[in-house]
């Protein structure tokens, strides 16, 4: 179960702007999905370890050896707004 206010809060966290219709729909759809998901609340999982990886790897490390970087033009090639030296954005807080 998730209510309208929570939907709006989560949308802000996720930087998603939802119009009225979407907020309505999301609230309903997410609630029914969450109701289903909440069934895992019934399981006794107290002494069960969480699984983050199914692979049993550890210490996968890279030698500290330089590899070529991109030419600046290549780095900026897909930039929606570049000044030729970097990626332009509205100043935070501005």
């Amino acid at each position: 179960m998730i209510d309208r206010e929570q939907v709006l809060h989560v949308a802000r966290l996720a930087r998603l702007r939802l119009d009225e219709g979407e907020v309505e729909a999301m609230t309903g759809e997410l609630s029914s999905v969450l109701d289903h998901i909440e069934k895992i609340g019934e399981l006794d999982l107290d002494d069960v370890a969480p699984t983050t990886h199914v692979v049993a790897l550890e210490n996968v490390l890279r030698p500290d050896e330089p590899r070529p970087s991109l030419a600046r033009d290549a780095a900026l090639a897909e930039a929606p707004d570049s000044d030729g030296s970097g990626f332009r954005v509205p100043s935070p807080g501005a």
Binding site: V60, L61, R62, P63, D64, E65, P66, R67, P68, S69, L70, A71, R72, A75, L76, S85, G86, F87
Partner: peptide
């Protein structure tokens, strides 16, 4: 594998990984 930068021209020490391009993955520096 990008070299650390000491006052180089902006955005001359980048690669798909440190630009966060889609599909790239991190590998820890030993």
């Amino acid at each position: 594998g990008c070299e650390l930068s000491f006052g180089e021209q902006p955005n001359t020490r980048t690669c798909p990984v440190c630009l966060g391009l889609p599909g790239t993955l991190p590998v820890v520096n030993a």
